[in-house]
């Protein structure tokens, strides 16, 4: 409850009034003192959350992501061949590979954008082919190239996403404020998405994911792309926090420093095949000539080039 109180204290006047309206706080006076309004809202929120804990703590099914025998063909080209992958709650798994390895295709199948040619994908226990709505309900996806509707304002986009995922309005307002602060998007809330830089767009998309209540199942395709060092740092800290709270995260990247610092396990792909998987220690055992994650990667994806 303390975190909720501090979010309310950080809200500007317009946000406070919006939240007061959502809580049906009487605003009959022409003027109201900010401190008084904050106090009223806080007590209303205490009442609102008396019955249940904020951001209802549900637990993910184990495994949260289960990809079995996934093969995806585009015509005669095989993009992914026989991929088996499991991400359990409380894990960050790195999907690592060179360009064209099949990472993005894997994440698109996982997000329910395209269907697998063979095999199955289960998200939080739901088969993506059989119950796509239930499977997508807990999944957050960030694409490789961040893009969004240019004629929406950031605030409109975030509200829109909250509505699609059926986040209660009060929860959505509080969570939006929390993550807008974290990703420093305050000044851009009323900007059109079409005018945002790539980094700011990436932040807006991330806030769109975190507007939903945890625990999350995240499929992030190059999530650090375009973020400045502070944004990247905030995201890494946040992902670790989410993992510790029980979220399951699959990150596709070819930036090995990020993978090494963030991921518990790795799946290394090359030309559609899985060429290595396990923890860093297990991969070091599999590749005796390698001493770092970079050398493991090079060894498994065509050999370490001579100098």
């Amino acid at each position: 409850m303390n975190s909720v109180k501090s979010i309310v204290e950080r809200m500007n006047n317009d946000e406070l009034i919006r939240l007061a309206r959502q809580l049906e706080v009487s605003l009959t006076n022409r003027k109201v003192k900010r401190d008084l309004l904050v106090e009223t809202i806080q007590s209303e929120l205490e009442e609102h959350y008396r019955e249940r804990i904020p951001w209802k703590k549900t637990r993910l099914k184990d495994p949260a992501i289960q990809i079995s025998g996934l093969t995806k063909k585009f015509g005669n080209t095989i993009a992914v061949r026989g991929l088996n992958l499991v991400v359990r709650p409380g894990q960050i798994v790195g999907l690592v590979g060179p360009n064209g390895a099949g990472k993005t295709t894997t994440l698109r199948v996982l997000a329910g954008i395209i269907r697998p040619t063979e095999g199955s994908v289960r998200v939080n226990g739901f088969d993506m082919n059989v119950s796509p709505l239930k499977a997508k309900q807990t999944l957050g996806y960030i694409p490789e190239r961040p893009t969004c509707y240019p004629n929406l304002k950031v605030r409109e986009y975030l509200t829109f996403i909250a509505k699609i995922y059926r986040v209660p309005p009060i929860d959505a307002t509080l969570r939006m404020k929390e993550y807008v602060d974290l990703f420093q998007l305050n000044d851009l809330l009323d900007a059109y998405i079409g005018t945002l830089s790539k980094g700011n767009l990436q932040r807006a998309l991330l806030v769109g994911i975190f507007v939903r209540p945890p625990p999350h199942i995240l499929a992030l395709d190059e999530p650090i792309y375009g973020l400045d060092p502070r944004g990247a740092w905030s995201l890494k800290v946040l992902l670790k926090k989410l993992r510790d709270e029980g979220s399951a995260i699959l990150i596709s990247t070819h930036i090995l420093e990020i993978a090494e610092g963030l991921c518990d396990r790795f799946v290394i792909m090359n030309e559609g095949d899985v060429v290595g998987k396990g923890t860093l220690e297990e991969l070091l055992v599999q590749t005796p000539n390698a001493h770092t994650i970079e050398e493991i990667f090079l060894e498994l994806t065509g050999g370490i080039p001579g100098t």
Binding site: I113, L139, R145, P146, I164
Partner: peptide, 14 residues
């Protein structure tokens, strides 16, 4: 559009 692919297709909408 590509935006629909990235934003709408992964959401729990029919």
């Amino acid at each position: 559009t590509e935006i629909d692919e990235y934003i709408m297709m992964p959401t729990p909408t029919m």
